[in-house]
């Protein structure tokens, strides 16, 4: 089913961009979620505290949205548990090895015109699209 939602996508995107702008101008940090998450486990003191505060804000966002009167999206998960676990392992390992994810490379890196982020974004988009093609159209999974 196609549920193209251009307005909420642009609006949500502008909020994500605003968060990246705030991180940079206030804290001098790139808003890359995988890096902030991994860093929260690795660092200590003030370096750890701002990361935990950022992650806390990220995690409570749906609660805040509901309190503001918004209607929360209902996640629709079609992939089985084994696939989710393998996916999690790949995403965790791959984002560390590749120094970033959709936020750090795909939003902040592209906004900074970083050649590394352009290359990484091209590769992970292609890899993800190929994986979806194989799982959906070759293996017949949803």
């Amino acid at each position: 089913m196609n549920h193209f939602t251009p307005v909420s996508a642009l609006l949500g995107g502008a909020l994500i961009g605003t968060a990246a702008l705030l991180s940079w101008l206030l804290l001098g940090r790139v808003a890359g979620i995988s890096g902030i998450l991994a860093g929260a486990a690795r660092t200590e003191g003030a370096e750890r505290h701002w990361r935990l505060a950022f992650l806390g804000g990220l995690v409570v966002a749906p609660v805040a949205y509901a309190l503001l009167g918004g209607t929360l999206p209902v996640p629709e998960v079609t992939r089985n548990p084994a696939m989710l676990v393998v996916a999690g392992l790949l995403v965790g390992f791959g984002t560390r090895m590749g120094s970033g994810c959709t936020s750090g490379h795909g939003v902040c890196g592209l906004a900074r015109l970083s050649p590394r982020s352009m290359a990484a974004t091209g590769v992970f988009m292609a890899s993800a699209m190929a994986t979806v093609f194989v799982t959906r159209h070759v293996l017949g999974l949803q």
Binding site: I33, R79, G88, V91, G98, S99, T121, S127
Partner: peptide
């Protein structure tokens, strides 16, 4: 190579589940 391999692994996981870290 490290960057590109990491991105390829991440993409495979992203496509397998539809989740990325954020």
């Amino acid at each position: 190579r490290r960057l590109l391999r990491g991105a390829a692994l991440f993409g495979a996981g992203w496509g397998l589940a539809g989740y990325c870290p954020g």
